[in-house]
Design a binder for these strands. Structure first.
Lengths: 131, 131
DNA sequence: GTTCATGCAAATCGTTTGCACAATG
DNA sequence: CATTGTGCAAACGATTTGCATGAAC
């Protein structure tokens, strides 16, 4: 069931470009850059190859994990736990760690106002089902 | 320049529904629920009101902050800093905090495998520009 | 009676996919 | 030559928006 991959100039250049930048580009940024050197390139190809590179474990996508926006009536600061099996998002009661912002400020000199944490794993119900 | 809001049954019910659930619903979940009691309700109205409630500070959206998927060729675990002014995403060199997962496990009994943190604030360039 | 909200449908935007053709192995 | 990748354009799914009508103040 292993997938076979053939090399392609497009995929190679996408990976190189991604490896050579410290920013975290979007697909269309990559498309615009490479279009200059590969004029026949299409945006669909960029997306296809990004997904292949993720399958290959060579890159990763930075996203929230959900295609849907989700809304929360609890506006007080809190962390979230996301169950990898059932997808539910659960508010955590553990205290906000104020030290973390300071640690980043010291390491970077960036003005660090706040942070968010999502924990991933199995919720109560799902870990019982897995047993 | 202050915005004026008039009350509407739809918005009131959306806020109530959101306040009465521990889950973090999507717009269409809210739509499905309320459609039963307000049959003429439209999905556009749900979205419009969710955005108004956010403006009013009564609810918040749980998202990554970016509409675009972003890709990263650095697959080693690390945290991100997101500049609120220029939107750039910067890899942080501070060590991963393994204690955090344990803290969550103790508080919840959830099997906690990993976590992600994003810090928000102003990057170097932008904090200089603001001065 | 002016302003803001609604329902509906069309539009938008990022991403995915079907297809015929080209490149890889 | 069998398989995988490409470009193109159409399709998709979540969200937004234009417009005529309706409710709030």
């Amino acid at each position: 069931m292993e997938k076979k991959y053939k090399r392609s100039k497009q995929r190679e250049r996408i990976l190189e470009l991604l490896g050579s930048t410290v920013s975290h580009p979007t697909a269309s940024w990559i498309y615009d850059k490479l279009k200059k050197e590969i004029p026949e390139l299409s945006l669909g190809t960029v997306y296809r190859n990004l997904n292949i590179l993720i399958e290959q474990g060579l890159i990763r996508k930075i996203d929230f994990g959900s295609t849907f926006d989700r809304y929360d009536a609890d506006i007080s600061p809190h962390y979230h736990f996301i169950c990898e099996r059932c997808g539910s998002i659960i508010d955590l009661k553990i205290p906000i760690d104020g030290e973390l912002n300071k640690r980043v400020e010291k390491a970077t000199n960036f003005k660090t106002k706040r942070h968010r944490i999502e924990f991933y794993g199995l919720c109560d119900k799902c870990s019982k089902k897995m047993a």
